[in-house]
């Protein structure tokens, strides 16, 4: 009986740890995702190719996350968008606005600083 209790307790803890890891992982990715999207949009792209470009570089993002994010960044003035025909279909192309470019440079500098600090901390 004690074994059973122990196993159940262990499984619960293991599930909790998995959930905890997943939550923290998502939180970590959420912040870097904006940076990745802004960096990718230094060259003009439409949603589908942007999603593919991010996925090809190991930053998979669901459509349900990407499109609302693009809208938010556009409403904040960081992106510009335009409907245009390409491959016989109308597509919405996004690109960085001047404000977005300026902000991206600052964010990249911040990212590099965090990265080097973290490396120092992890090395001990």
């Amino acid at each position: 009986m004690y074994n059973t209790v122990y196993v159940v307790h262990y499984m619960t803890n293991s599930q909790d740890n998995d959930n905890l890891f997943e939550n923290i992982r998502l939180e970590l990715r959420r912040g870097s995702l904006i940076l990745a999207v802004l960096a990718c949009l230094r060259s003009e792209q439409y949603g589908y190719t942007l999603r593919r470009a991010l996925a090809d570089r190991g930053m998979e993002i669901e459509e349900g996350t990407l499109y609302p994010l693009l809208r938010r960044l556009e409403s904040q003035g960081l992106l510009l968008s335009e409907w245009r025909e390409a491959d016989k279909r109308n597509k919405r192309f996004y690109r960085l606005s001047p404000l977005g470019s300026e902000l991206l440079e600052k964010l990249l500098a911040e990212w590099k600083s965090i990265d080097s600090s973290l490396n120092e901390i992890v090395k001990g």
Partner: peptide
Amino acid sequence: DQREDILRELSEDIQSE
């Protein structure tokens, strides 16, 4: 207020996939 625009964009994205 955003319905038409969102649907147009999502439709295009799904069609591309």
